[in-house]
Amino acid sequence: MGIALFTLGGTISMAGAARLDGAALTAAVPGLETLDEPLDIQDLEPVGSGSLTFAQVLAVAESASAAVRAGAPGVVITQGTDTLEETAYLLDLVWAQDAPLVLTGAMRNPTLAGPDGPANLLAAARVAAAAPARGLGALVVFNDEIHAARWVRKTHSTSTATFVSPDTGPLGHVIEGRVRVLTAPVRCAPLPPPTAGARVALYTVTLDDDPDTLTALAAGQDAVVLAGFGVGHVPAVLVPALAELAARMPVVLTSRTGAGSVLRSTYRSPGSETELLSHGLIDGGLLHPYKARVLLRLLLGSGADRDAVAAAFAERG
């Protein structure tokens, strides 16, 4: 069995009004025939990445695991880029195989000059077949760079260099067809797939914010991820509402900046990280808000209580 290629749609497969299936997608990639491992194409129902659900992503994870158990040395998933940083992280959290699980896509569709999809797909296939990529979990391969799902972010709406890892840089590169892994991330044990749903709101703090807006958003939710200013600050007027929420549900403190960690005890003014954590908010560490929501929803869907959530963020945040 060759490398399993699962196609989910996205810009990489957009050809005007039509969508390219896996056969047409791979036919447009010069160099695939030089791979030591062929591609075993499995076309999935095309879904715009903005419409993907947890259930659909977890179903792909199970299909990918089944392919590895059947002998595939690695897996490539093509999808849209809008939510790729989130789907990659969700897959990474549950991926229990040593075989590489590689996500890629495109920023320019095949009808445009210089589409990047073929090069990205070729690089992703090379990484999926590479021994140095084993044991690294889910990876995102774009622009000949190899990124850990845990750290990668989409940082530009149109650039082909949109995927970067601000806190770490890429794990490696594909150079003249050779996969060079320069550093390996610390891997945590995989989490079980959820057995129930969970409603997790994401609230981004803004200038002159209103506690009533926060309270209304949190109504009916099981938890909240808070994207605070800078190192984890909020307007002082929000603190009573956040303290009340943290008394009845997990509230995870993250930074809206997209890079760097929230702090724990550097600032002590009203609305500071020290005050918020003293009221029971959970330290999100280096996890940015979108990925914190993925982790929190997965934990709650598996029955984790507040203490288990806090422990998980202490390990993974």
Rank of each mutant, 00 (worst) to 15 (best):
221 Q>I: 01
109 N>H: 15
230 G>P: 03
277 L>W: 00
5 L>E: 08
204 T>S: 12
122 L>A: 10
93 L>I: 06
163 F>N: 04
262 V>A: 07
274 T>F: 03
183 T>H: 13
33 E>M: 11
63 S>I: 02
223 A>L: 07
187 R>T: 15
181 V>Y: 09
26 T>W: 00
214 L>F: 14
197 G>C: 11
267 Y>C: 02
157 S>G: 12
235 P>G: 02
222 D>K: 00
34 T>M: 04
106 A>I: 02
278 S>H: 12
223 A>H: 02
160 T>H: 10
70 A>Q: 14
92 D>A: 04
235 P>A: 02
35 L>Q: 11
304 A>H: 13
193 P>I: 10
60 V>M: 14
269 S>F: 14
257 T>S: 08
173 H>V: 03
238 L>N: 04
38 P>Y: 00
195 T>V: 12
162 T>L: 08
136 L>M: 10
204 T>P: 05
280 G>R: 08
31 G>H: 07
155 T>Y: 10
68 V>C: 11
88 A>N: 05
133 A>N: 13
182 L>S: 06
63 S>E: 14
266 T>F: 15
96 A>T: 11
124 A>Y: 10
222 D>L: 00
284 G>D: 03
191 L>I: 04
240 P>I: 00
7 T>L: 06
146 I>D: 05
51 S>C: 13
8 L>E: 13
234 V>W: 15
17 A>M: 10
178 R>I: 10
227 A>Q: 03
287 L>D: 05
89 Y>K: 09
270 P>H: 02
207 L>S: 05
285 G>Q: 11
39 L>D: 01
140 V>M: 13
289 P>W: 03
49 S>G: 08
173 H>S: 13
147 H>M: 07
275 E>G: 03
188 C>Y: 13
145 E>W: 07
58 L>Y: 04
6 F>I: 03
232 G>P: 07
267 Y>A: 01
206 T>F: 15
113 A>V: 15
311 A>N: 03
51 S>I: 07
188 C>V: 09
183 T>P: 01
68 V>Q: 00
177 G>C: 11
222 D>R: 04
251 V>A: 08
59 A>P: 10
195 T>K: 15
76 V>D: 14
146 I>G: 07
313 F>Y: 06
184 A>L: 12
204 T>W: 10
26 T>I: 05
20 L>V: 15
30 P>K: 10
175 I>E: 15
258 G>L: 02
44 L>F: 00
177 G>D: 14
169 G>S: 04
95 W>I: 13
281 L>E: 10
65 S>D: 01
230 G>I: 08
227 A>G: 12
137 G>S: 13
23 A>W: 01
217 L>D: 07
252 V>G: 06
307 D>Q: 09
205 V>W: 09
